[in-house]
Computed example of a mutant assay.
Amino acid sequence: MQRPYRLSCHCGDICVEVDADLSGLIECNCSTCRRSGFLHWKVDSASVRLITEKRRLSSYIWRGLTEGHHFCPTCGTAIMRSGYPENRVSLNARCIEGVDVFTLEIEHYDGRNDMYPGPLP
């Protein structure tokens, strides 16, 4: 599949296009990533474009006011995370249409032991 990539939640209410290279995927085992199955694809926020009409995203804010885990309020699919430096966002690569993530190179990050945990849920 070629750029731009199209990502959507399970019900299709949220759909975005991303004009960026599909590389640098990271799977993390921190408390939120391991529960949600989020597969990080960090891109410049300017490369992301909403292609469905504007919809409400639900957000879960845990560590700070400038970061959040954003998901579809209808189907619950986690689609994006914000709060990264340099105008970057992390998209859930598992939401890319027409791409089998099992065929992609994925780096593993030990967020469980490497990240400052804050209060654990």
Rank of each mutant, 00 (worst) to 15 (best):
E86M: 06
S31P: 02
S58F: 07
R49W: 01
L104S: 13
A20E: 15
V48P: 08
I106M: 10
D13C: 08
M80T: 06
E27C: 05
S82D: 13
C28V: 00
C95N: 10
K54M: 00
V16A: 04
H69M: 01
S47Y: 04
F38E: 05
C95P: 08
G37P: 03
P85L: 11
L91Q: 09
T77D: 05
I61V: 15
N113C: 08
G12P: 05
S90Y: 01
V99R: 10
S8T: 08
R49S: 11
L25G: 07
Y84M: 01
R56I: 00
H108W: 11
L25R: 14
C11D: 11
S31Q: 14
I61Y: 13
K42C: 00
D13K: 15
C11M: 12
H70G: 01
K42P: 04
S45N: 05
D110I: 06
H69S: 02
G24F: 03
I51T: 15
T103F: 06
V18G: 05
D13E: 13
C30M: 08
E86F: 10
M115W: 08
C72V: 07
D21H: 12
H10I: 00
R34K: 13
T32S: 04
A20S: 15
I61F: 12
F71C: 05
D44W: 04
D19M: 05
Y60G: 02
V43Q: 11
Y84Q: 10
L91Y: 01
G37K: 08
E107K: 15
L65E: 14
R81K: 14
C75Q: 12
D19Q: 14
N87M: 08
I61T: 13
T52R: 14
I96R: 02
S59I: 02
I51N: 09
R112G: 00
